[in-house]
Design a protein around this nucleic acid. Structure first.
Lengths: 229, 229
DNA sequence: CTTTCGATTATGTCTATACATTATTGCTCG
DNA sequence: CGAGCAATAATGTATAGACATAATCGAAAG
């Protein structure tokens, strides 16, 4: 049960930094000093510090030394689970209804000019509308979707299982429902909704663009930041 | 301008994975094979693969080998910049007005039971209300805030500069403004707002809890996922 | 046919050393 | 006094070899 040496070094400094004992901007000992203090080789120290550096905890400058990073904008991890899985995890019944499906030529966005499948549908939790979505899927990037049965399975779930993306942009904002949107969600016009717009790529090839409108009472996003991940 | 060897190895496999040439679950060559293919030592290969592994692109299993990771869909990076900086970056004028400041004993949440400073204020962009916020700051964890001048600087900005947090939870959801909230934001009652609730810790010590209500038209969150950062 | 257990093979970590890179420090020269 | 340049001190990358660890595979035992 002996802890690897490099890990011990990492833990040592991570703890001291998180405890505030080493304030932002403070200088750490040189690799030489750490090396003798821990009784190990310099490579081991270097690798441990590299890990902390890529985690954003410290900053290393040649000739100058190693310093505790000054926290800038904090990046948080936003959980984006599959909607169906998320609803069922709450013990609710999940259902998806496909409302529209047609082949189009995209006119805007990152899919602009490409042949795409236009899909619209409604997500239900325990029989009540939870969200409506409007999606374009590139037929060039995902030809298989032309033959997919999407009447029961949400397109997002299908895509997740068939061609995972490698890059994505997400915009999150509040939106007052239009009359049409409100009707589809069983709300009054102008009711507050959470809107999520996401564009995804595989490498540089656009895959899909989706706009999801959630009933405010039924959905929230949760993000977390911390050393535990 | 010779690229470091380890970086070349990383790039090689990253490109092939992102291009789909190496499908999820596919096995990479062993370190021995890569080592001879690139004409370098095993340490170099190992370090390169370790980097890819910690980036989540590959998965390494002893005895079995190295495999392309099945994409984890559920983690995106949400930037949490300082609000003042974000507004000014858009070329707008930023202002904060402190509306209330009183010492209280927290009654709920992670600060429950602790002595805290209750702060309420309004964020303005180009003179128009952008958001209202309601915040509790632990006086035990941040005694210095008792003497801080917060009439012009937002408490979040002050905290960011004085005691950065190490852990945070964020909830994001849509909210229809109450009559009071709407009045403060210059909206009609029921107008859609984006609500962000955040609790932060330093280690295990609670720092602050904040609820920010944004005018829907003026604010959106942006999250990103991808190797590009 | 199933279970156990050892051999094998891959990754994981570490060492000691070497040389490259780079920004600072400080000295020299105008 | 200042501009430029060289010495220096730190990190960055790499090597070849050694042993540790763990999971798989296959053979032996039940």
């Amino acid at each position: 049960m002996t802890q690897p040496l490099g890990e011990a070094i990492r833990d040592h400094f991570e703890r001291r930094i998180l405890a505030g004992e080493l304030a932002p901007g403070a200088r750490l000992p040189t690799e030489q000093e750490i090396m003798t203090a821990f009784g190990c080789s310099r490579m081991t120290v270097s690798k441990a510090l590299s890990t902390l550096a890529s985690a954003g905890l410290i900053e290393r400058r040649k000739r100058a030394g190693t310093f505790v990073a000054r926290p800038r904008v904090h990046a948080m991890v936003l959980e984006v689970p599959d909607l169906a899985a998320q609803v069922m995890e709450r013990g609710q019944d999940y259902r998806f209804r496909l409302d529209r499906r047609e082949k189009v030529t995209a006119r805007e966005g990152h899919l602009s000019g490409q042949s795409a499948l236009h899909l619209a549908g409604t997500h239900f939790a325990d029989g009540a509308p939870l969200a409506i979505e409007d999606r374009l899927v590139s037929l060039a990037a995902v030809p298989a979707i032309a033959d997919a049965d999407l009447t029961g399975e949400a397109p997002g779930t299908w895509l997740l299982h068939h061609i995972p993306w490698t890059e994505a942009d997400t915009r999150i904002f509040a939106h007052g429902a239009s009359a049409e949107e409100a009707a589809a969600l069983g709300l009054q016009a102008g009711a507050a909704c959470l809107c999520i717009e996401r564009r995804t790529w595989r490498g540089t090839e656009p895959i899909t663009a989706v706009r999801q409108l959630f009933v405010a009472a039924g959905y929230e996003l949760v993000a977390h930041f911390g050393p535990g991940g």
